[in-house]
Design a binder for these strands. Structure first.
Lengths: 194, 194
DNA sequence: GCAGTATTGGAGCAATCGCTCTAAGATGTC
DNA sequence: GACATCTTAGAGCGATTGCTCCAATACTGC
């Protein structure tokens, strides 16, 4: 069945995450990636059709990891989802740097392979549905103002403060949770939370 | 005294801001910049020693513009400074995209010219002093927790929600101010605000 | 051992980019 | 008009990068 593989796809993806987290998207050259895991550039292109496709997989993997935690908590409790952001960042510092400090558009330049586009749409849909269900549960009905309010409490506020720490190459301290809790309670309706 | 200049430094800086706001830092090539204002590449290097130096000037100009408004308001009132973020973004959408969607480290790769380093240190010092003065005024004394609390209310929360709009190429609506006010009041001590 | 195949290994190509360099054009001074 | 000076003008160089291509290698089934 042919030669046994010396590397795995995840070796390349993990190394790519580390390189981007350390030096930004510009640092991720194919040569740098290959050197990092002592692989030839041919092996990179044996697994990934292009640098863009590799970066797309990196990005999707990160989103999946984050969103998985986030949505699961969100189905139970909004505040828990807010704090899940903090928890995920502390558990995945390199991935968090990429997710919070860069945008997908600045990583990949070309079009994505169809299969990855499908995965991306799936993730978007999952998140959207979970958020809409949450808003209905907490506010009764979905309006632009309610949506903004919820996304701010769940997402913008935690990621906003966490971003500052990551930008300074620090992990956000546990005390950040207090600020997020106070913000959540101030902005979300009182009735159902807790 | 020699040939009359056809272009001004600000022509190049303004065009650079537009290009980065539209296409990210990667879109700002010297050729693209030159084409944009129908100038030869030689004229770019006649004014700026390098691409990095040009980007550094772009970045510093944006920071100066933002910080000028922010500090002036902060000296009077914290909530006003929070809302000043929102106001500045609505007035300077292209600059805001650069400031909020990218990091200085990802724009420039090399070392800055000494004169620009000096300006950058000056800006940092001004901001730091204004924030420290504000914290003393509002909390009585400066602790890590108080500092975090103040920066969250003044800076992380507004920029966090604004970032989402800019990322979708939208200008944040006025209703965002309500959320920021509620957050500010929830997180900052009650006594002095207002 | 031999054929077939999956993978490694890396030289090198084509394109792009930052930047240099030299010539030409325009303006002021005498 | 001669000269000095500042600026435009853009051809092209060196370096880097994504990617291709082909040979070598190691494994499986017979």
């Amino acid at each position: 069945m042919g030669r046994k593989a010396h590397f795995h796809n995840s070796d390349f993806l993990d190394a790519a995450i580390q390189i981007i987290a350390e030096g930004g998207p510009g640092a991720l050259t194919i040569a740098a990636l290959a050197v990092r895991i002592h692989a030839p550039v041919g092996s990179v292109y044996h697994r990934f059709p292009s640098r863009d496709a590799l970066l797309a997989e990196v990005w999707l993997g990160i989103i999946e990891s984050f969103q998985d935690d986030f949505i699961r908590k969100l189905e139970e409790d909004g505040l828990a989802a807010t704090l899940a952001c903090l928890h995920w960042v502390r558990q995945h510092p390199a991935e968090a740097r990429i997710l919070l400090l860069h945008r997908m558009q600045d990583l990949t330049t070309g079009r994505w392979p169809p299969e990855l586009q499908k995965r991306a749409r799936r993730l978007e849909k999952d998140l959207h549905e979970a958020v809409i269900a949450f808003i209905k549960r907490e506010f009764g009905k979905v309006t632009p103002e309610n949506t903004d309010r919820a996304i701010f409490a769940l997402y913008d506020a935690p990621l906003g403060i966490i971003r500052r720490y990551l930008s300074n190459s620090q992990v956000p301290p546990a005390t950040v949770a207090d600020l997020l809790r106070e913000t959540y309670n101030a902005v979300m309706p009182k009735a159902k939370s807790r």
